[in-house]
């Protein structure tokens, strides 16, 4: 092993501290889910008698399974939609010259500056007049495309050489085939990153699903868990149990996709 230089020691110490700060709440969540309700407010990490009762209870006595299904459908459908449309729009903005291109791009970028809190009221009015209140589609529609995704994909598509697209044109592909078979495979790192962002964002979305849904059968996991905290008491161990289960898909998505976030294949078909 190489001897550690002082700079590296400092760096590693800082990273370790950062890591601990990040992981502590998660550990607490996991620990609390294994505690009994009498033990919840004792602030030691390890449960005295670890038990899986909470898990059994939340899965059998609450509609948690249903919420999980709703969340999963919402998150995967919106992610699929974001991946498809954002990359299509990003590709068009990066690779085609047309009148108003810059304007469209700036317009899309400017949506990034508007916080969700400001949008929920217009969304609500819109959903109401279109009859989307308390429907699955109503939960999903604001997340079907994202300005950030368009920006991200555009930046990556800018790096795809025009020559490759011309080569595909000579090979007789139509414009959609060029996008699908040539350009898209070259930006898989960006697609993976975007998939993670989109999935996590929609999986943990709270404010909008809370507003648009009223029947518990359409609650997403965060909304459902929040409904567990009542007016006079909050079942923290239940909420933490639900949260622990809810972490699993996000972890899976991350583990499956992060392998793809390696750049480098991009330019290898060209020189050097």
């Amino acid at each position: 092993m190489k001897p550690l230089r002082p700079g590296r020691i400092v760096a590693f110490t800082l990273l370790l501290m950062g890591g601990i700060v990040m992981i502590m709440p998660l550990l607490f969540m996991l620990a609390t889910s294994l505690k009994t309700s009498s033990e919840v407010y004792e602030l030691h990490l390890l449960p005295r008698e670890p038990t899986l009762d909470n898990y059994l209870e939340i899965l059998t006595r609450s509609p948690f399974g249903r919420w999980f299904l709703v969340s999963f459908s919402v998150a995967s459908l919106t992610t699929a939609s974001v991946l498809f449309f954002d990359s299509l729009i990003g590709y068009t903005l990066a690779k085609f010259r047309f009148r108003g291109r810059t304007f469209v791009f700036i317009a899309i970028m400017s949506t990034l500056m508007i916080p969700t809190e400001m949008l929920v009221i217009p969304w609500y009015v819109m959903a109401k007049s279109l009859g989307w209140l308390d429907t699955l589609w109503g939960v999903m529609f604001p997340g079907m495309m994202s300005g950030f995704g368009v920006f991200l994909m555009r930046q990556f598509f800018l790096g795809v050489p025009d020559e490759l697209l011309d080569a595909a044109r000579m090979d007789g592909l139509n414009e959609f085939q060029i996008f699908w078979q040539v350009a898209l495979p070259l930006v898989t790192p960006a697609l993976s990153a975007l998939a993670i962002f989109a999935f996590l964002g929609n999986w943990t979305a709270f404010l909008w699903p809370l507003i648009v849904t009223s029947s518990p059968s359409l609650y997403t996991v965060p909304v459902g868990l929040a409904s567990l905290s009542g007016e006079f008491q909050t079942d923290w161990e239940m909420i933490m149990t639900g949260s622990s289960i809810a972490t699993i898909p996000t972890l899976l998505v991350f583990i499956l996709l992060q392998r793809n976030i390696i750049s480098g294949i991009m330019l290898t078909g060209l020189k050097g």
Binding site: L164, D166, T268, G269, L270
Partner: peptide, 19 residues
């Protein structure tokens, strides 16, 4: 369109599909 012109082109940077 290019594909129906019965021509083929070799590009300066080769333009091979990397994947």
């Amino acid at each position: 369109p290019p594909k129906d012109r019965n021509i083929a082109m070799v590009f300066q940077n080769y333009a091979l599909y990397p994947h």
